[in-house]
């Protein structure tokens, strides 16, 4: 796990790992509306790839095309060297898909759901037994194996979903918002599982709207209006200077300043937090003179400020900035 948090090499695919999924110029139109536009994407074995974007950005359409659920209007998808569009059956044997909502059978027990799923993937009887036992083990579902699935807490059901998608040993796993609605502890466990799986060589594509989770991915792609607007490792994204500088004012009663600061033309956005105020300045603002002016104002108004520092951007800041620059035509 520690090695995952070390900055990965700038080469997108870890050395020696083969590309599992490659999408080229992937496009999907619904009538005159283009949901996904000329998308290029590649994921290597053992890589955790995060697809980010607001609702309607085209994440779900993309994932549905990649899973073979939706034929693309144009473009190619190769999954483990199988052409997804031409040989969907062979491609499907290579992928596991965990949908956003529980899609297994609630009336059946955990074990029955797994046995059925193993059968649907054509596993032999012996293999079924072995794989179901493995899945119950790895996903800690033994204790609830004979309980009715619908009666289980959400965290267990998500794990059952994951177990069902892994029985046939897919080479890539698609996780559509796997942790939405799951409590923080279960989320943590879920991510540890994802790392374990990835380290065994499975490629993983995950969509999420939790920005803190995005940081766990090896590589990210941010989607907006059907296109990828930024791509790279979280570290490389974070290390790029933000066009809109960030300042943090720390002090016991700095929250009061939010009122009068709102009128300042240089400020794009103010985020009040407990004990500090975060300011995002407009692109091109000189930080130094601004900081001086701010200090003077604070002193004049008698606000005690402990510090005013430039802040490191979070992925969320980067995402918001990217969206702004994408939607303002230049």
């Amino acid at each position: 796990m520690n090695s995952r948090h070390a900055p990965p090499s700038p080469a997108l695919n870890p050395a020696g790992k083969s590309t599992i999924l490659a999408a080229e110029q992937l496009t999907r139109r619904f009538g005159t509306f283009t949901a996904v536009q000329a998308l290029n994407l590649s994921i290597a074995a053992g890589e955790v790839f995060g697809l980010l974007g607001a609702n309607g950005a085209g994440k779900t359409t993309t994932i549905r095309m990649l899973c073979g659920l939706l034929p693309p209007s144009a473009g190619h998808i190769r999954l483990a060297d199988v052409d997804m569009v031409r040989h969907p059956r062979r491609a499907r044997a290579q992928l596991g898909y965990v949908t956003q909502h529980f899609a297994l059978y609630g009336e059946l027990s955990v074990r029955e759901n797994l046995v059925m799923q193993a059968g649907l993937y054509g596993l032999s009887h012996q293999r079924q037994q072995a794989r179901v036992a493995w899945a119950l083990d790895v996903l800690s579902l033994h204790a609830v194996a004979d309980r009715t699935s619908a009666a289980l807490p959400l965290g267990f059901r998500r794990r059952l979903d994951l177990a069902a998608a892994l029985l046939h040993e897919p080479r890539i796993l698609f996780l559509d918002e796997p942790t939405s609605g799951v409590d923080p502890l279960a989320r943590q466990q879920f991510w540890e599982l994802i790392y374990t799986l990835a380290s065994s060589g499975i490629a993983i594509l995950v969509t999420t709207h939790y920005m803190d989770e995005a940081a766990y991915c090896d590589r990210l792609a941010m989607m907006h209006a059907g296109r990828i607007i930024a791509e790279g490792s979280p570290e490389s994204m974070l290390s790029q200077p933000l066009p809109t500088p960030l300042l943090e004012i720390r002090g016991p009663n700095c929250a009061e300043c939010a009122g009068w600061l709102a009128d300042w033309p240089e400020i794009q956005e103010i985020f009040p937090h407990a004990g500090y105020l975060r300011l995002r300045l407009k692109a091109g603002t000189e930080v130094k003179p601004f900081r001086e002016r701010l200090l003077t104002q604070l002193r004049q108004r008698g606000v005690q400020a402990v510090s005013i520092d430039t802040a490191a951007p979070s992925l969320e800041d980067i995402f918001v900035t990217l969206l702004e620059s994408d939607s303002t035509p230049t």
């Binding site: 059978y105 009336e107 059946l108 029955e112 046995v115 059925m116 799923q117 193993a118 059968g119 649907l120 054509g122 596993l123």
Partner: peptide, 21 residues
């Protein structure tokens, strides 16, 4: 036609039936 797929589906349906008195 893969008979194993059919069997998996049929068995599931059978469980469903038995589960629904």
């Amino acid at each position: 036609m893969n008979l194993q797929h059919v069997r998996a589906m049929a068995r599931k349906e059978w469980w469903h039936l038995l589960r629904d008195p």
